[in-house]
Write a protein that binds this DNA or RNA. Structure first.
Lengths: 178, 178
DNA sequence: TTGCTCCTCACGTCACGTGAGGTGGC
DNA sequence: TTGCTCCTCACGTCACGTGAGGTGGC
């Protein structure tokens, strides 16, 4: 039997978080002490463990409740959808970073973002001794082994849709011939 | 003189957004019509244009107001801080994606994330004909030309801090010798 | 008269954080 | 008695979205 503070510490959460989970019915303690303290049982702890897993995956608390309380909730679908929405959110944040970089017009600041641009990337490959032919082969293999990651990678370099289409196009064509 | 609906359409915003900006004093129309309609002047539109720039960069509305209304607000500092906090937010979202990928234990799903892992990356480089020695040179140049992006790149492959430290360590050492 | 745009409250959102004022246990 | 943990409201957060109930212009 754990008090609310003990349970909070065990999961690295605040007490107000657990009070909130109780208020919305996501995790209510199974018992109360004489002084009306919330008492969490081992079973409550196991429920909290499951909540924690999905919380870290970024599911909404309402969805977590559905997953825990009804057997026929399509968990995989929920997770795949969240994966997509996380991609969109990351894209939106990257867009904001790019706007800030524009405003700063500052190469030093650009280096502190997560973004590499095309010029920087090819400079590194070339400095490492990679030839143009080897770079083309590299695109071909990237396209063959991980086409969606290839798309994402090219987007991350800030290329427009047309150029990405061209690169992936000849990558597939050379891959088919090879 | 634009009405609130016209101004909203011009900036692709909703009317309630502009009502909210008026209510917090961020953008109040300079005039009212006989029927008490809000009327936005050309000067109001120019203010809205500046708001829009900073909004797209992800600044908080309170910060935007400070930038517009006081001359001595350190804009560059605000932008740099926001760049950092965006990095942290993106990192947190990536962490959630990684948790979901764990839960799905599904390679197909992993390919739909933005993440490449170490094995996938080296497989592509090797398939493109890159030797071990060339891969080492590539790390050396990456470290020399863009050390922070190198760190981010290694993190994005899911390597732990120790392995990243090792790789960057010998990259710097070989770079110094070369 | 009909549709459209506008007006002003007021309340909801999501996952908590922060008091305020008070009680129980060592 | 002192500190600590606990309790229950109630309100704040951030940037809006959504009615409800009503008015003005073509």
């Amino acid at each position: 039997m754990l008090t609310i503070g003990q349970l909070a510490r065990r999961f690295g959460l605040s007490r107000s978080t657990l009070l909130y989970y109780d208020s919305i019915g996501l995790l209510s303690p199974s018992g109360r002490s004489g002084a009306n303290y919330r008492l969490y049982t081992e079973e409550d702890v196991r429920r909290m463990e499951r909540i924690d897993v999905y919380r870290r995956a970024g599911l909404a608390l309402a969805d977590i409740a559905r997953v825990l309380d009804s057997d026929d909730t399509p968990l995989a679908e929920l997770l795949e959808e969240r994966l997509q929405s996380l991609n969109r959110e990351i894209g939106a944040l990257r867009e904001k970073q790019s706007r800030i970089a524009d405003l700063l017009e500052d190469r030093a600041a650009l280096r502190r973002t997560r973004a590499m641009d095309k010029a920087g990337w090819t400079a590194i490959l070339r400095a490492a001794g990679m030839s143009d032919a080897e770079m083309r082969r590299w695109h071909v293999e990237f396209e063959r082994l991980a086409p969606e990651a290839h798309q994402d990678f090219l987007e991350s370099l800030g290329l427009d849709a047309e150029e990405i289409g061209r690169i992936r196009g000849w990558s597939r064509a050379e891959g088919a011939r090879g």
